[in-house]
């Protein structure tokens, strides 16, 4: 069992938890993820690592309620425990493998969409700790859905917040901010890291291709085991089949076939897809995976 040592609500249906998982806390790095299972009948839910404390042996995760299993997970509080918490899985961000001195010479911009702020945070924090200040653009539907603002401000070089409805700071998408920073403010970036809903990452990549900024994205498709065994998380990158769990989750955003990946995701995201899925999954369709709800990225 993996005890929850802290639980707090960040926004509507979004919760942050510190979980005691010494093996994961000891070895994890920014960019990696865990798979969490609440109990015997629960699903295996992949979640990105938001932060970690090697001394305390805890790992911070952010969970959004999207279905039965995540609903039950979010109802837990400090003192409760998850039955399974396995990781770290996937590959660490390329950044952490680079020489910090080289990184200091680079201008890096992050674009985080909604819940994507959670996996962006540990990367920005890691850079900050190694003396690299990165610009961070955080976009969300509205003011209420902005998470980890203070934490991010403490580690980012510049933090730019934008909301779809203009209820906080400014109105617009993350891509609007990035375009302005480059075209109006004359900023130059050597690397962009975009994490958020698939459609957002697709549009960031279209823009950065135009602006000629190499771009890394983090994919979070359907998966079960997270160790390469099931192949459910496959996607096309540069014309080759890749498994998000063992080859990713980060990929060159300019090579990812987003349309194909989104078609796969449509299985869970469109009315029609969901209806078909209910039909196909028959009695076993419990909505447990939560993909039938309007989930967005992790």
């Amino acid at each position: 069992m993996f005890p929850i040592v802290k639980a707090e609500k960040l926004a509507d249906k979004i919760y942050l938890m510190d979980v005691a998982a010494p093996r994961v806390a000891k070895s994890c790095l920014p960019g990696e993820f865990v798979i969490v299972k609440i109990d015997e009948v629960g699903e295996r839910i992949p979640l990105t690592i938001c932060d970690y404390n090697r001394e305390a042996g805890t790992v911070t995760i952010v969970i959004q309620v999207v279905g039965a299993s995540t609903q039950r997970m979010c109802e837990l509080g400090a003192g409760d425990a998850f039955e399974d918490f396995v990781g770290p899985l996937g590959n660490p961000s390329e950044l952490v493998k680079e020489d910090p001195e080289e990184l200091k010479k680079k201008h890096i911009v992050f674009v985080a969409g909604g819940l994507g702020t959670a996996p962006v945070y540990p990367q920005v924090k890691w850079l900050h700790e190694h003396g690299v200040d990165a610009d961070v653009i955080v976009g969300a539907r509205n003011k209420e859905m902005i998470i980890l603002e203070d934490e991010m401000r403490a580690v980012a070089g510049n933090l730019y917040i934008t909301t779809d409805d203009g209820s906080y700071v400014r109105k617009g998408m993350g891509t609007d901010v990035l375009r302005e920073l480059v075209e109006k403010d004359g900023k130059h970036y050597d690397l962009c890291i975009a994490i958020g809903p698939m459609i957002m990452m697709k549009f960031v990549c279209l823009l950065t291709k135009e602006l000629d900024i190499p771009t890394v994205v983090s994919m979070n498709p359907i998966m079960i085991d997270g160790t390469g065994m099931c192949g459910g998380c496959r996607l096309m990158v540069g014309g080759q089949v890749k498994f998000a769990c063992v080859d990713g989750p980060e990929f060159d955003g300019h090579l990812v076939d987003f349309d194909g990946a989104m078609k796969r995701q449509q299985m869970y995201k469109t009315q029609e897809g969901r209806a078909l899925l209910r039909l196909q999954e028959g009695e076993s369709h419990h909505g447990g995976c939560g993909n039938c709800e309007d989930g967005g990225a992790r």
């Binding site: 009948v41 699903e43 039965a68 299993s69 079960i224 192949g231 459910g232 009695e283 076993s284």
Partner: peptide
């Protein structure tokens, strides 16, 4: 994937959360 959903995650049983596209 198909077998793991059914065998390990017990998707064939109503009382488990994991689905399977039959």
């Amino acid at each position: 994937e198909y077998l793991t959903r059914s065998n390990l995650m017990k998707a064939f049983r109503d009382d488990y959360d994991t689905p399977i596209a039959a």
